[in-house]
Design a protein around this nucleic acid. Structure first.
Lengths: 192, 192, 192, 192
DNA sequence: TGCTAAGCGAGACGGTACGTCCCGTCTTTTA
DNA sequence: TAAAAGACGGGACGTACCGTCTCGCTTAGCA
């Protein structure tokens, strides 16, 4: 299958170095065929990723450390791990490549499983039950903010060590979560 | 000057389409010379941007709407504008290209003037004076979070309209700023 | 046609200064195409010469001065002329370039017409009829020796004036021709 | 010494692939210096060869097989060997490179020792004494003809085996030598 | 069952850019 | 103060892909 070769190549050489020529070579396909089906490299890659295997929910069980603060740390760690994984790198690659295909984002979102990008309802409910967060607390502060900040640090090659994470959580995420009881914002895009 | 040609070309065709060949052509320089000085396109571009004009503090005066909420909205607007401007596009371009040069980031930061990425001391002080923020409030929540979130939305091609901004400010930035009184986190990199 | 451009260029700038780049330019062909067809400059030039027009038997009629000595002088003159002509220069150029393609030699031989490199049967027969040469005289002494000697003098930039020619003929060619009645030697290559 | 490096390089890569750049590198000399002294590669190479060691008469003693025919065969063999040796290859290289420096030719001639290109007086005298050649026989037929023919065959990549040599000697050289008793022709150039 | 037509692989083609090497000229640095 | 060191504009090298194209060869589908 052609798209499988595309995925393999993506993994081997990255988006920029991926060429029609090599895809054709590997897939024993004609360049003409590739061009007939996908007018641009972007389209082809998107199709390949979209057609890719549902990448098996990467293990990971539920998170319940007993406190919302511990849960957030665990979630951020998981998110960071996801971003350093194959799937995450792939997403970063595509993001960096400037590919902004909503369908692709949705696909990644749906198939990647518990990435740490979502604030699981169980965690939120538990925190509310414990009285750490108010009734009606919204996950936005975590999902939008933590995702963006960590992703950008990764794109920038900046570290996101324990010190940074705890500061982020204590100074921003927790206060925001505690204060959240408004309406839903527009949906997030990549990684969640 | 060679680097000037690089900047012009960057503006005309973008990072990906910028070639040594064309730079040499425009600058009446030899490719060998270019390669002698900058081993990669990335290096060359970074040098060009770093050597670029201080890009004239983009006008914009101080911000003082009378409330911290109004000031934040104004700042976010300005930041979004910056990111859509030439300088901002350039930064995005470099970011997307995977260039992560701290020196470059600092340079952009220093030369771009009031981009909206920094929370001006005047704004912070005024809010504290008005009693909207506690003594010792830290700009981290704004500088790290607002910058990341808006930049990523831009990379993703997602909108950041008034509704979104107010939600972000009300649900996240303000609560976080009000709760901030700890120690400084690691410094931010791009756009701030 | 590409090879035509090669020939034109050969004539204009010579073998050493002939470049793939310029051939591609003139022929509106891609360098890749040239390299695909001919791995080396030599191959390309040989192909061009081999494909060249049969270069129109350069006029010149039969030779019959009434004596073998006169005929030989005339033949040597013609040979010298040939070597100074376009075709001859081309051959010299190729020779100097170290190109030793038997097919090419044969081609030149076949297409160049009466170059003076061959001892025409008519001349030989007439000399035998006149009694100047013995029955069964072989052209080797002329074809191999005169060709080599004159060609080498030309390569060396040495003159081959009337004095030299008559000395060569009287001291070497004629005695050798008169004594020749043996078997055939291996065939000659260039210019004959 | 710079010229020594030139010679070494000549031997290693040949004339065509010899560059000012590499000579400068090897000789720890500046390109400017080389250009100041020798305007062209040719000049430099000629100077190097001319300044080269007298290349020690390559062993080889006198030739005396008892007959002029045997002596000629031995001489031709030696000549062929010379042309395949380092010195000979060098000469061929220069010849092919189109260098026609009389001084250089003389130098090679003088320093190369008994190359087989000259017909030694001892051989000629012995043949005359034996009555094989007439009084006043001239070496021209050998020196000019054998040299040219063998050199050209070499340039053309054609063989010059025993059969060929005996034919050349019997059909041409010997008859010409026997008939030679005229005046001297213009001096030969390369190889004798 | 036989014939046509669409789709495919293979790969040639005119281009453009790559990164390297060398040219011949020139400054700059060192001794 | 001359020579080394080497930067410079220029340009060819041989390679890799680009996106377009023409070939034959399958391999259906329709007759």
């Amino acid at each position: 299958m052609i798209l499988a070769c595309v995925l393999v190549l993506l993994g081997e050489v990255g988006y920029d170095a991926l060429t029609y020529e090599e895809v054709a070579r590997r897939a024993h396909a004609s360049k003409a065929t590739l061009y007939r089906r996908w007018a641009t490299k972007g389209e082809m890659v998107v199709a390949a990723v979209a057609a890719g295997p549902a990448s098996a929910a990467t293990g990971a069980g539920d998170i319940d450390t007993g406190s919302i603060r511990g849960d957030l740390i665990a979630l951020c760690r998981r998110l960071d791990t996801t971003m350093r994984s194959a799937d995450g790198s792939l997403s970063l690659m595509l993001l960096r490549a400037g590919l902004e295909d909503p369908a692709l984002c949705r696909h990644i979102e749906e198939t990647t499983g518990p990435t740490g990008a979502k604030l699981p309802a169980s965690v939120l409910d538990a925190a509310i039950r414990r009285g750490e967060l108010p009734q009606g607390a919204q996950p936005f502060a975590y999902e939008e903010v933590a995702g963006s900040v960590l992703l950008l640090r990764r794109l920038n090659g900046l570290p996101a060590g324990p010190d940074y994470l705890t500061y982020l959580i204590d100074s921003t995420l927790l206060p925001a979560l505690r204060a959240s009881a408004g309406t839903d914002p527009p949906p997030r895009a990549i990684f969640g």
